[in-house]
């Protein structure tokens, strides 16, 4: 069969690939609040006056940045499953806690992204002049307002390029979730190539879709950075 009808014919595989792309986009987008948010939390804890807190957070970052992302995913996935089983047993015989593969995948990605992004956040937190927070406090803002209204906007501007790099890593890392049981873009391509024995066609199609996603988010990043820097040019 020609490649065109394999993709777009009546029994074509394009719908499956597009659904997979949607899952990939959703996996990446869903990991952003937990991953980047968790990274910011870690960064704030790393600057804490208490040494034990700092050490624990540094250890977390060193661990997840020093091992393969695939291994991190397995550790989070199987560790979570084991914990759920233990909890289910603790709750009694009738309880059987099931884990949704998509949710587990998002959690696993977030754990890795939090470790990566905390370094970016720490560098940006150090780069915001302390006088900004002092002035805000002197104006009578409460600590939450100081952070939200004064520090965070400046922080975001400084962190944006670094977070953009991590976002592109995140997009590509979602492909690892295909080894768990989530029908993302890469798994859809695997499925199609197994059924049709045309791996070259389908993995190329998947590559093209990944490329569209990463190139277009590159443009998005450039726009956001321009916007964040609009007062500085």
């Amino acid at each position: 069969m020609g490649w065109f009808s394999l993709l777009f014919g009546p029994d074509g595989w394009a719908p499956l690939l597009l659904r997979g792309t949607l899952i990939t986009v959703m996996l990446s987008a869903a990991s952003v609040p937990f991953g980047f948010g968790g990274g910011l939390l870690l960064a704030l804890l790393k600057l804490s006056p208490r040494r034990a807190v700092r050490t624990a957070c540094e250890a977390y970052t060193t661990f997840f940045r020093g091992i393969p992302d695939l291994l991190s995913l397995f550790i989070v996935y199987f560790g979570l499953q084991a914990l759920l089983n233990a909890l289910g047993n603790a709750l009694g015989d009738g309880w059987r806690l099931e884990m949704n593969a998509f949710v587990a995948g998002v959690l696993a990605l977030s754990v890795v992204v939090a470790a990566y992004s905390s370094e970016v956040w720490v560098a940006s937190l150090r780069a915001v002049p302390p006088g900004q927070a002092e002035a805000a406090r002197a104006l009578g803002l409460d600590p939450g307002q100081v952070f939200r209204l004064v520090q965070l906007p400046q922080l975001l501007r400084l962190a944006l390029p670094g977070l953009g790099n991590i976002w592109t890593i995140l997009i590509k890392d979602t492909s690892l979730i295909s080894t768990l049981a989530v029908m993302d873009l890469l798994r859809a391509a695997s499925e199609a190539s197994r059924s049709t024995a045309r791996p070259l066609l389908f993995y190329s199609a998947a590559s093209a879709l990944y490329l569209v996603f990463s190139v277009s988010s590159g443009f998005g990043q450039a726009y956001l950075e321009r916007r964040a820097n609009r007062g500085y040019s």
Partner: peptide, 23 residues
């Protein structure tokens, strides 16, 4: 460079490993 930096390494690996079987 755009291809190799913009797509997942796992996808590239599948393309080589399974694609070679087709060829």
């Amino acid at each position: 460079t755009a291809y190799f930096r913009g797509t997942p390494l796992l996808c590239q690996l599948y393309l080589v490993y399974y694609g070679a079987g087709e060829l």
